[in-house]
Simulated scan of single mutants.
Amino acid sequence: MGNGSKQVTPPTPPASEAFDSTGSGSGTNSGSGSSSGTSAGHRVTPAAAPMSSAAPVALRIPAIKVDTPLLGLGLDRDGSLDVPPTGVRNVAGWYKDGPSPGAKGSAIIAGHVDNARGPAVFYKLGTLRKGQRIEVARADGRTAVFSVDALEVYENADFPERKVYGSTDRPELRVITCGGGFSKKTGYKGNVVAYAHLTGVK
């Protein structure tokens, strides 16, 4: 989800922002929902009740100054998640055949880290920290508010599809972009994934 513009080097999240060694963190590493500060000393925020299904229309991540419209995405012929148009820097997409953000299950949002002109919508995704806020405005006029549980980096060959895309028993969100190093021959070597759970509705 990026073209690898050689003028930019997107930040990579530190190991301290990943899930703990037991693989947990969903619900236990969640934070206060604050859009400022670090993950140190953040308190657990209980999960909110699931919302009804409604298409998302915009995504806001205050801590990294993201405010972008959302397009519907499907699957490519090889079964992989489609990506937003590469020529538009400030746009992301959600997997329209999966749960909508705020509904029960894992909602998927993806966007480019860069393009040929420089940084794109999720260039700073790797600087997010546990407990920071992600907001998704929906077509029903409500906004689903999520708290970041963890950020992890995966090599392409080791991408944990079940962990990222698998069903969950509460409303969760995955925000995905490219990362994990860059090769001039093949592009980005992996992905950065932010995991979050629903903590409120406004």
Results as ranks from 00 to 15, higher is better:
Q132T: 07
V148S: 03
L81H: 06
G27T: 05
V8F: 13
P69T: 05
V113W: 01
D20E: 13
A196Y: 04
S106V: 03
R60T: 15
R142E: 12
N3R: 13
Y95D: 11
E17S: 12
S5I: 07
G190S: 10
G187S: 06
G131Y: 05
Y154H: 12
C178Q: 02
K6E: 11
Y154S: 01
P11E: 12
T28E: 02
V121I: 15
G200L: 07
S52K: 14
N3H: 14
N3V: 06
P84C: 09
G180V: 02
K96C: 05
T199L: 01
V145S: 07
I176V: 10
A120C: 09
L59R: 04
G141L: 12
V201S: 13
D169S: 14
T177S: 07
A92V: 04
K65C: 03
G27Q: 03
P46L: 06
A110T: 15
T68D: 10
P10W: 06
D76Q: 13
G200R: 09
G74Q: 06
K163C: 00
N156R: 13
M1E: 05
D82Y: 01
R170H: 14
H112F: 09
V113K: 01
G87A: 12
E172P: 01
R117K: 14
D67C: 00
P171H: 11
G141P: 08
G141C: 12
P14E: 11
L198W: 06
H42D: 08
F19H: 13
A157R: 11
M1V: 12
L151H: 04
G33N: 10
S183R: 01
G98D: 10
G2Q: 02
F19D: 06
D158T: 04
V66I: 15
G187N: 08
F182Q: 01
G180M: 00
T28W: 01
G180C: 04
T68N: 11
A63L: 09
R117T: 15
G33Q: 09
G33Y: 07
